[in-house]
Simulated scan of single mutants.
Amino acid sequence: MTVEDLPFWLVNVPRDQWPATCPDFLINANPKDQRILSTPDQEYHRLTWAEVQDIVKSNQIGLFQRAPSDLRKYLAYSAKLKKEYGAVVNFVLKERLQWADLIPKGPPFTNPDDIKILYNDWPYGIDKRIVHLVVWTKFELNEDPTTGDLTSEARQEIEDYVQKTFCSQVDPRNVIWFKNWRSLKSVHAIEHFHVMLFDADPVFLRRITNGDVPLSEKVGSAVVPGDG
C-alpha cells in the first residue's frame, strides 16, 4: 500500500502502531489539517528564515503550519488537555503562565508582572534554527474592529517593546514579530503575540524565558502516534 492509498490518519504512523479506526482527536480534522497530515514527514518543506520574514511582512499569517507529525501530536495533546482541564486556555493559565488572574497592574508594557515570555509549545514547521516565542500579556492589545488588525498605537507599543527586549540583544535582522488574526488564534482568552528569532544565543533565551522548555519537548514520545 502506497502513501497515496492511506487515509490521512495513518500517514507517518509506524505500521505496528496503526489504529483500527480514525482516532477521536482526528475525526473532525478540517481539510487543511487533513492535507498536512497526509504529507509524509520526509516530503515536508520547513520554511526558511527568508520565507518566514516574507510571510510576516505580507501579513499572510495563515500560511504558517506545523509539520505533519508535529501537528498530529499537537492535536492529540490538545484533545487530552480539553478532557483534563475543560479547555486549553485553562491549562495555559494555570500550568504554563501560573497566573491567578488576568488583571493588569499597569498600562501596557509598564509592569513586568503583566508579561510572560515562553516558548511556543508546538512550533510551526520552520527551520530549526528559528526560535518561536510567545509573549503573553494581561493587558489587551487593541484591534481595529473593522479590519481585526492591530491599531497603529498598539502596533507601535509592541514594536517598541520588541526593540527594547529583543533587538537590544539580537541582531534586528534576525528578529520578527506578529500577532495572529483572531480567526487563527488557538487560545482566545489570553492576549499574546509571537516573536521569532533566528540563530539566537541560548544563554539569552534561557534568561528571557526564565529557563522555559516547550511542551513539545517535555511530552516527546509520551504522545503515541497511533492513539494520541
Rank of each mutant, 00 (worst) to 15 (best):
R96Q: 14
L97M: 10
L97C: 08
W99E: 08
W99N: 09
D101G: 09
L102M: 15
L102R: 08
L102Q: 11
L102N: 04
L102V: 14
P104I: 01
P104Y: 01
K105L: 13
G106C: 04
G106S: 04
P107V: 10
F109Q: 08
N111E: 14
P112H: 14
D113R: 08
D113M: 07
D113L: 10
D113Y: 02
D114H: 06
D114C: 08
D114K: 01
D114N: 11
I117G: 05
L118R: 15
L118P: 02
Y119W: 09
Y119A: 05
N120A: 03
N120S: 02
D121P: 08
D121K: 07
D121M: 12
W122M: 14
I126R: 03
K128S: 14
R129F: 08
I130A: 13
V131R: 06
H132V: 09
H132M: 12
L133K: 01
V134S: 03
W136D: 04
T137R: 00
F139K: 01
F139N: 00
E140G: 05
E140D: 15
E140S: 15
L141T: 02
L141G: 00
N142F: 07
E143A: 12
D144G: 08
P145H: 11
P145N: 11
T146Q: 13
T146Y: 05
T146H: 09
T146C: 03
T147M: 11
G148Q: 12
G148C: 13
T151M: 00
T151I: 02
T151S: 09
S152R: 13
E153G: 03
A154D: 02
R155D: 12
Q156N: 14
Q156F: 03
E157F: 00
I158C: 04
E159I: 03
E159N: 13
E159H: 08
D160P: 01
Y161V: 00
V162Y: 06
V162N: 09
V162M: 10
K164T: 10
K164R: 10
T165V: 13
F166R: 10
F166G: 08
F166S: 10
F166Y: 15
S168N: 12
Q169L: 10
V170H: 06
V170S: 09
V170W: 03
P172L: 11
P172Y: 09
R173Q: 10
N174L: 07
V175G: 11
V175E: 14
V175Y: 09
I176R: 00
I176F: 03
I176E: 01
W177R: 06
W177S: 10
W177D: 08
F178S: 02
F178H: 06
K179N: 02
K179L: 01
K179S: 04
K179Q: 15
N180S: 05
N180C: 03
N180K: 01
W181H: 13
R182G: 15
R182E: 15
R182T: 15
